[in-house]
Structures are given as C-alpha cells and as structure tokens.
Design a protein around this nucleic acid. Structure first.
Lengths: 342, 342
DNA sequence: ATGAAGCCCGAAAACGCTTTCCGAACGTAA
DNA sequence: TTACGTTCGGAAAGCGTTTTCGGGCTTCAT
C-alpha cells in the first residue's frame, strides 16, 4: 500500500523509436514488421531485432485509425449473471481469433436508457460490429436500424424482422428430448416446464408434443405442466402428477432447476431415477447437472456455437451484406445417468 | 437471410463534416463541442446544430490517440462461468462511469499461454489499466512487473507482493458468521467447509474458530469438517455429525452448495431449519440462496465492491503511484430465514 | 558504355481528433 | 487618430500507424 510501482517505465516504444534504432525510416520499419515486400532480408532482420530490444508493441489504435477497422466488437447484454453472455463471448472469441478481435462487454442491466448509453459509447469507439444478447429468449426491441455497423442478435431475437437474429431451435430441442426418452423405451412421458409466457417454453412443448404424436405416444397427465422456472414448481408439479395416480416412466423438464425439483419429489415418493422414472432437464447448467443425484441428462443450447456463428455472420458482414430474419441453431443432448443408467 | 442490410450508410460523420456544414474550421468545431473557451455562443450553437444534423459521434480512437489515454481497461479473467468476473466488471463500470471507460473482457480459460496472448493484445490496444481476476481465491502468478500500465489483482491475489491485490476478508467473514449465529442464541456451532487446500477455506475457519474462542463457545464435533465444495459433501458431513450424536444447533457452511446439502440432510433426519438447527452459507449465490427451503442466509463477498475499489485504485494510479500488497475488503452478511425465522 | 529493368528504401499523405499559437477584428482609452 | 487590450476564429503541429509514390542504386542485356 505504500511503495511506488515502477510501471512508469516511460511510454511504450513507437515505430519511430524502432526505426531510429534500426537506422531506417518508419515506412521501412512498418513494412518489415508487417511482412510486406520491398524490404531486404538484412534490413528486415535488423528491424526485427530493434523491435525486440525495445519490446515494441504496435499501437492498435493508430493502426485502426488508418485501417478504418478497430478489431473490436461490442457485446451488449442484459444478462445479469453472465450465464448466457460468457459462453457466447467465448464462442465469438474463438471464431474471430482472439488476436485479431477483442470484445467490449457492456451490461445494460435491463435498462433501456443504459442500453442506449452503452450503444452510443460502443459506436463512438468504432466497434466493427455488435452482438446483442437478451436476457430471456423472446423477441426484444431492435436497438435501431441504419446503424453504421452490422448487428447480430443472439439468444433473444430482435422484434424487427429486418434484423438478423440467432436463436436456439427450441422446437427441435423438444423433439430431441422426447426422442431420447422414447428410444430408451419410455412410453408415458410427462412434460413439466416453466412460465408459459416464455416463447421458449411454448416451442419446447410444441416440439415435444409433435414428437409424441409422431410416435403415437400419450402425454402423461394429458397436459403440459406450465408453471415457474423453479425447483419448487418441479417438486409440486411432480407431486400433483403422482397424487393423480398418473402412470409416468419419464419426465421432460423445461429447465435443470425444475428437473432437480422433479427428482427430489420422485425420491420423496420412493421412486428411483432412472429405474422407475427417467428425467431430462434443459440448459445443461453444470452446477445443477453434476450436483444432481443421479447426474442429470440435459439439453445444451450450444451457446458457444451461437457466439461462434454470430462472429461468423459479423465477419461476413464486414465485407458484404448481412442477412436478416431469425436463424435457428441446433441444441445438443447430453446424456447422463438420470436417463441412461451408468 | 437474403435481404441486404442498409448499414452501409456511408462512414460516420467526422469533425471535418460538422465544421464544413457549420461553416467553421475543425478547430473551432472541436472547441465548440468540447465546451472550450474562445468560441462565441452563436457559433457554438451553429456547430451543435450541425453535429446534431449529421448525428456526429466523435471518434474515441482518434481522441485517445492524441490524449494518450484510451478510456479502456482490460479485465483478464480465468473464471469460466463469469460468476466472479461479471459482478467485478459491473462494479468497475459503476466506479469509472460507463461513459468514460469501457471494459475489454478476456477469458484466459486457465491457460497461461492464452493469458499471455491476451495480455499482449490488451497492451497493444493501449488499455489504461488492467484488472486480473483469478479463478480461485489463492495466490496466482503475477502477470509481470514493469508493465506499462497499472495492474490490480482482484479476488485472487498476486504471488508477487510488489503487486496490488484486492481480496475478500475471509477471516472477518468467518467471525461474522459465528457472531451472527451466536447472537441468535446458538451455542453449539459446527463448521462444514470445502477443500482445505483453498486458502479461503482456511481463513474462514480461522476466523470462525477465533470468534468461537472469544465467546467461549465450543466447536461442535470438535473439528472443522473440511471436504469438497459440493452439496454431496455437505450432506455426508452432516450425516456423520448426526450419527455421532453431536449436539448441534447451528452450522456455518463454507459455501451455499454445501449449505444446501446440510439442509437436505437435516431435513432427512427430521430436523427443522432454523428451529432445531440454523444454517448459514457462503457466496450468496442467488440461485442457491433463494431456491433453498428455507431461503438461505449467506455471506456475500461483495464482488461489486471489489470491482469498484479496483477501479478506484486504477484511476488513482493513472496520475500517481499505485500501492502494493494485499488489501482485505469486507464481506457482508445477508440474513434470511435459514437463521432468522420469518 | 548506355539504357532498361528491378529492387530497396524514404518522403509524405492520410486517418480523426486536440491543442497551441497567431492573426484579425473589434472596442476603448488617450 | 493611435495605441492597446479583448475576444474569436483558423492554421498547423502533432498522436502512431499504413500506404502510395517516386528516387536512387544495382544488375543485366544491348
């Protein structure tokens, strides 16, 4: 708390410094460092050595100024916990290549004012593109058309069909869950899920029902149990189901938390998972899937992939046109012991 | 997917454009927009109007180039889930003022190579400062001395005492937990916590023991139950405790997950929380504290505050010297119904 | 020996902005 | 009228790069 830091080691070396040390002009130094032609091997070596000596790091800002590209993209999120943004960010980082593109993360905390504020800031920093991540998987207001940079909406689609949105394919995910359970021989499957005002809940249910119909299987309890995204709801819905003496040999839960509640209630009723009832969750949120007993099968929304594709679409838009509309990206099923006995 | 975006609305307006439209020089335009002197009210108004018409947004890069400051700080993390980084980021954003400073988030994913890579990238982008967030609260390697920018380590301290680190005060937090339970009248308190190789686990235990000693209270079970940071461990440790017929009227758990396991096992044994046994957790991870039954009292590490202080230290270092050593920041206790009956 | 043809290298412009400094215009006092 | 102070506006010098373009030097064929 008292000593002074030696971080004031003068300003970082500039290209000018390197050139002077190597005894060439800054133009030559630039060409040498960037591997352009018209530089002899000897001079190039000298420049490189000088750069090494001075620990030269090119100033990306200056480079961006002349290139007209900053190599930065903005990630505008409303996701307080970062549970969505972080995987998306990592996918985007991967796709861009972390050395060429950096991500500026801004959290609007669900506040439109703050979002506008962040948007302005990002634009003034001349980001090359923007990824907007919503907090829940339902259409959200567009941040505006005619922006000077391409924008991709991830997870939550834009309400404006002129924008490009990437979302998880919840309908297919619903089918996938039922397919998995059915192929394991389950015949009476219930679906306990969350808030019915969520489009994602509806879509998953729609997919599940379609797959059941295709296979000629009934829906246990004769209805989709909509409720809340909570463990408590999973528990009480399961109890309702059991109290009505509904035959059930599998439950497709709308979230991992609901699934935990389901398993809890099943255990409470003396049933064993997966022997008596198989359970599959949704989100593949590790904290729940691995701490569950038995470990929980779940459907992963592939958020890294969402980020990766978002990055690809942006990169394509840098030189060319961005598409529009909503693109559905596949989820993937992670089987664990709550459906497939170890 | 097929239409073309109108985002190619020409390049954003420059100061030059504004000046031309307002019929003044760029120097005057700059002064007018920045509220400098030597501009008459009339011309200032004209410039402002022109800027509005053109939707002018100053290019922060160019500004940073001349000012020698970019208004960006790098947040270098190894925290895969963002559970730590995000609150720290938000605290930092708050302290800086989101309009003046943006945060460049990089995840090294626990890989030293990648970390070095990100570090170089951030430096080449000329961030004004760096916040390094470790994945676990133990000393981690310094990212290097003599860096051209000030660096603050948050959550995980640097192994180099010459660096400045900000960590949660785990010892005090341990005392705090015991104090809370003791003042509620609990007399036989057990401490079930996680991996003993974590310094944080040791510190919390140390604080707890010290507070017990100060109050002349025994430690239930006569030892600290170290184990794993898991619900399963919370459950089995509790069962051990009960099987030994140890009298217990409160448990201080080392994490919220452990606390959940504890509560689960207590319920299994027919005990009621908090009537028979009070339980307090650690981390205040909302997903656990609110879904627990009853809602879980917990200790919050105040990560936003960590971020806020980190930002302040950096800001102070921009003009002046950065301190060094490890600074302990207080945690805060969030009482809920697992200790205080509703 | 002489012109053509390469190959290297450097001067200079440009990117968009801030800031210093100087000159112009005005008003006031002598 | 002259001298002087005041107030505004503009020219220009950067900030650290990249890139274009032209000039000098070498090399080769004539």
């Amino acid at each position: 708390m008292t000593s002074t830091e030696p971080h004031a080691t003068g300003r970082p070396a500039t290209l000018h410094d390197v050139a002077r040390l190597a005894g060439v002009s800054i133009a030559t130094a630039s060409k040498a460092l960037n591997g352009r032609k018209h530089v002899s091997a000897a001079t190039r070596a000298e420049v490189l050595q000088a750069a090494g000596l001075l620990a030269y790091t090119p100033n990306t800002l200056a480079r961006g100024l002349v290139a007209g590209r900053t190599g930065m993209v903005g990630l505008l999120t409303s996701d307080l916990e970062g549970r969505l943004s972080i995987p998306i960010l990592m996918g985007a980082e991967d796709a861009f290549g972390a050395d060429r593109t950096s991500v500026l993360l801004c959290d609007a905390r669900g506040d439109a004012i703050r979002e506008g504020h962040h948007l302005r800031t990002l634009l003034s920093r001349r980001v090359d593109g923007l990824i907007v991540v919503g907090a829940r998987p339902d259409p959200r207001p567009s941040i505006g058309r005619d922006l000077p940079v391409p924008v991709v909406y991830a997870y939550a689609p834009s309400a404006d069909p002129g924008d490009l949105s990437l979302v998880s394919d919840n309908v297919s995910a619903g089918r996938m869950a039922i397919e998995h359970l059915a192929e394991l021989g389950r015949r009476t499957i219930a679906h306990i899920t969350g808030d019915p005002t969520y489009g994602a809940a509806q879509d998953r249910a729609k997919g599940a029902l379609a797959e059941l119909a295709d296979r000629g299987l009934p829906l246990a309890g004769d209805r989709v149990y909509f409720g809340a995204w909570s463990e408590a709801w999973g528990r009480s819905a399961t109890r309702m189901l059991l109290a009505q003496h509904v035959a059930v040999d599998a439950v497709f839960a709308g979230s991992d938390q609901i699934a935990r509640g389901v398993i809890d209630a099943l255990h409470g009723a003396g049933l064993e998972v997966p022997r008596d009832v198989a359970v599959i969750g949704f989100d593949n949120w590790e904290i729940f899937t691995t701490s569950s007993r038995p470990p929980l099968s779940s459907i992963d929304m592939n958020l890294e992939n969402l980020g990766r594709v978002a990055a690809e679409r942006l990169a394509a838009a840098f030189d060319g046109a961005l598409g529009s509309g909503v693109e559905q990206l596949p989820c993937r099923l992670i089987p664990r012991e709550s459906t497939v006995p170890g």
